[in-house]
């Protein structure tokens, strides 16, 4: 037995505690995704036909952002093995070794609870319930089940990312209406072409990580066709707010012009050989092989397209730029 008399002393400098900074923990919460969540939720909140206390609205949106960040932390904790394999995600805090998966889970769970509680206090129980469900859907249904098991992972899992504008609407109104469902559906239909465009030019990454994204599971040609089909449905559906009166002339023009460009880029992908080049990919998000430029362009533009649509809604409802189309709208 080791006794005080015979114990040899090994003085070790460092290595006993983590050197992770608060910034590492913040990075776990996927700040770029949080930005998009805040933006789309804000547009749903603004577009709702109800006045809401500005302070409570601000706190509710903040709670939503923290909830989305918590879901991101849970995702990074569970997907550490995948992230370590993929060049695009190797520098995330967990695969980099800055934060342990256990700490990431801890942050995710605590932040989820605080976010849902705050939403319940500041807004209403329906908004809090939707937030809790969206966190569960992203962290458990998508991350732990769908992502590793089916090429439809981001089609079904995309629902998690579609909740923010609906939650924004519910924060203001306390109920789910047809317009809230339409906002949900726009992002739901937007997710497949957006994600598959990225997967096309990063397919080697997903293959190495054994993630059955569509280009890996069904091939590049099938993916390009599905991108085109989803894009057609998306662009048509994006006109729905005009029919219900949620969107006016500004939204209609944005939807029409933005949708036309979206379709052009989707057709360009369909006619390209994106995803079929054999060389290894570069690490940067926008780094791309020559044959995959069409996929990269649609991926980048898809973010802009969604931003244009929701900016138009905000402009119409927050800055008095709403003019209904003749014979339609409010």
């Amino acid at each position: 037995m080791n006794t005080p008399e015979n114990a040899s002393v090994h003085r070790v400098k460092g290595g006993a505690v983590s050197t992770a900074s608060p910034r590492d923990y913040f990075d776990l919460m996927k700040p770029r995704v949080m930005t998009l969540v805040v933006f789309t939720a804000f547009s749903g909140l603004i577009a709702a036909p109800v006045d809401v206390d500005p302070f409570l609205a601000l706190i509710s949106i903040f709670a939503l952002a923290v909830g989305a960040g918590a879901a991101g932390a849970l995702n990074m904790a569970f997907d550490a093995d995948i992230d370590a394999t993929m060049k695009r995600t190797q520098k995330r805090p967990v695969p980099r070794g800055a934060v342990t998966p256990a700490d990431a889970y801890g942050l995710g769970v605590v932040a989820s609870i605080l976010a849902v509680l705050t939403m319940a206090l500041a807004a209403n129980y329906l908004a809090a319930g939707l937030l809790a469900f969206s966190i569960f859907f992203y962290a458990v249904i998508y991350t732990m089940i769908l992502k590793r098991s089916t090429p439809q992972n981001i089609v079904i899992g995309g629902a998690a990312g579609a909740f923010p504008p609906m939650i924004g609407w519910v924060i203001a109104t306390g109920e789910i209406s047809l317009d809230a469902v339409i906002l949900f559906m726009i992002i739901f239909l937007w997710t497949p072409p957006h994600s598959w465009a990225l997967a096309l030019y990063k397919s080697g990454d997903y293959q190495a990580a054994n993630v059955p994204m569509m280009p890996v599971a069904k091939g590049a040609k099938s993916t390009r066709l599905q991108i085109l089909l989803y894009s057609i449905v998306l662009v048509i559906f994006a006109g729905a707010p005009v029919l219900t009166g949620l969107g006016g002339i500004a939204y209609a023009a944005t939807s029409l012009g933005g949708g036309a460009l979206f379709l052009l880029l989707a057709i360009r992908i369909f006619n390209s050989r994106a995803g079929e080049a054999g060389s290894a990919e570069d690490g940067a998000l926008y780094a791309v092989r020559a044959g995959d430029k069409a996929a990269r362009d649609l991926f980048a533009y898809s973010i802009g397209y969604l931003t244009f649509l929701f900016t138009a809604l905000i402009a119409e409802h927050a800055f008095g730029m709403y003019w209904a189309l003749p014979g339609l709208g409010a």
């Binding site: 460092g14 006993a16 983590s18 050197t19 992770a20 900074s21």
Partner: peptide, 23 residues
């Protein structure tokens, strides 16, 4: 019983821990 291992925090560890505590 003392295991014979003695850890002293490096300056980086102390600084990082302090920042986390403040956060």
């Amino acid at each position: 019983v003392p295991s014979g291992e003695h850890y002293t925090l490096s300056p980086e560890e102390e600084a990082a821990r302090k920042k986390r505590n403040v956060a």
